[in-house]
Write a protein that binds this DNA or RNA. Structure first.
Lengths: 228, 228
DNA sequence: CCGAGTTTTCGAACGCGTTCTTAAATTAAC
DNA sequence: GTTAATTTAAGAACGCGTTCGAAAACTCGG
């Protein structure tokens, strides 16, 4: 007599592993060895299955990393959002940015097709907050989507450029010989030449929030202007 | 008696290939087969040398693609820049964007460390134009660098997201079944739920220049405000 | 003419993500 | 009880970027 509430309904060979187990093992390996040393083969070995088995539970490595990000994203604490709509947009966007910037492997997945639309409910709450802020400020829903997309481009670009520049800064710091730009034609490029090594000083500065403020200022101004 | 003007000064085995030849062959392969099918091995076979030989003329594949971009960049026509500083910033930035967006393989290289600082003189002319516009508008040189960096983040993000979303739109277009977002909790995400499939209509729109205008507006306003 | 030094070439090999194919283990139908 | 259908597992293999080490081809000092 079959048990009525038994979870066995499907035919086929019973699985020895699960997507949840894979994600857990991946998190463990990343925490121990760093995300750059995470490979499909080592992950499979960690679990004790063949490498190709993982492809039954995960589309590919990109998908795996996206699922990881989504898992983390569900645990991101949403800050109390300010009353003022414009400030609400900025705080929500900065929260998204800080969360993604904290996971170095996010850079590998950030530009996958439809990234936003595949997010879970909790991360989507921050997207919603950006839209709500723009709409409360007086934008149409269409314009609010445009506002979010523009912020998203800026945010993705900042994270990607920064994460690929992270190699520097580890060692001595004075090991930065040579002109920052290859010898510059001071006649044709006067401002760049005048900057000299100053570029190297300015480039690593964290100006994300400042730029975000400028962007949101401009975007929201466009929104109400279009309304008139 | 050695010939005084003979070009042979170096010792060692004479090279059978050159960086220029490699780049030319790479361009040919890309033009014929598409950049996605360009591999180091096939490129070497095209030239008629061993695969590992290429690594004496090029650091790695990323370096190869960067050199290709730089070559193309030297041929980009610089538009006549407007008088007004703000408009000059926008036109220069849009020129950079359009050039990069036209080379799909640019996305692979855009975030390499120090991308900007390794550019040749001609592409750097557009960077110079952005800086000059900001400074002419009343920004300090430091602020002008910040302006450029912010624009750069926005531009890189836009190109990367778009290039990874390029898969769609090829086929029928009506093959877009299912909700664009996975079933949305209309209680917690009202605006997203209200948008529904509208997101799919808005997302592919090219709003780069609009967003750029908003960003530059805000950035330059910050600059003169800081001046007071 | 001959070794030392130098630069380039290239085959072998590594680890990677991924695909293909075959085998194993279960349920459902007769 | 046997057979079919179905789902998962996993070994073999492919092409990839890249590293390593040895061999080749040159210049130069004696």
């Amino acid at each position: 007599m079959p048990q009525a509430n038994a979870p066995r309904l499907k035919a086929g060979r019973p699985p020895t592993t699960s997507r949840a187990q894979i994600l857990a093992a991946a998190r463990g390996l990343i925490d121990r060895n760093g995300w750059e040393r995470l490979t499909i083969r080592k992950l499979a070995a960690e679990i004790g299955v063949g490498a190709t088995t993982l492809y039954h539970h995960v589309q590919d490595k990109e998908d795996l990393l996206f699922l990881l990000i989504n898992e983390y994203g569900e645990q991101v604490v949403h800050p109390r959002l300010p009353e003022e709509p414009q400030e609400r947009v900025i705080v929500a966007a900065a929260t998204i940015h800080d969360a993604l910037a904290a996971w170095p492997w996010a850079a590998e997945v950030l530009t996958t097709d439809g990234f936003i639309t595949r997010l879970g409910d909790s991360p989507l709450g921050l997207v919603e907050a950006v839209l709500a802020g723009a709409i409360d400020h007086g934008c149409t829903p269409d314009h609010a989507v445009y506002v979010f997309r523009s912020i998203w481009y800026y945010t993705v670009g900042e994270i990607l450029v920064r994460s690929h520049t992270a190699r520097r800064g580890g060692g001595d710091g004075a090991n930065h010989r040579g002109p920052f730009f290859g010898n510059i034609d001071a006649e044709k490029l006067p401002h760049l030449a005048a900057l000299g090594d100053r570029w190297a000083v300015l480039a690593p500065r964290d100006t994300y929030v400042d730029g975000l403020r400028a962007l949101v200022d401009g975007l929201l101004a466009q929104g109400v202007q279009a309304e008139s």
